[in-house]
Amino acid sequence: MKQKGIGKMSGHSNWPEWIYVAVVIALMCYVGAEAWNVERLIEHVPEDAKLITVTGQQWLWTFEHEDGTKEIGELHLEKGEAYRFEIHSKDVIHSFNIHEYTVLMDAVPGRVNHVWFSPNVAGEFDIQCREYCGLIHYNMRGTLFVEDKGA
């Protein structure tokens, strides 16, 4: 009510501002709904996803496959399969990232985090650390090799 009074005193209508605020709120609702939906879809882990245990430590990545094979700095996966990463850290916080596949999850000491993806293009991709972890953070890199099935 007060707003209206002051609006009248200064000789202008407040309707444009109300409409403007309504448009902004509507846009935010749209953004929120879209984001919620996409997040819900990508958080749904397929049941037959294979487990890869990822361990970050200053300043390298270690990968352990379901069958117990270990790799350091390199990860070999098959195209068309789904993989679930279980991410650990031995010392400080790191962030496991395959940018090409928008895979990102922090490696937090004392916690286990999960993220999953399914590579659909064969090739070599960069693995990097995205959370500051000290001296050689800039070079805490690895390579993901996606191979065709049975290759």
Partner: peptide, 9 residues
């Protein structure tokens, strides 16, 4: 928008 965090964080 939370999914975009995977790309930009």
């Amino acid at each position: 928008a939370m999914p975009l965090d995977f790309m930009s964080h």
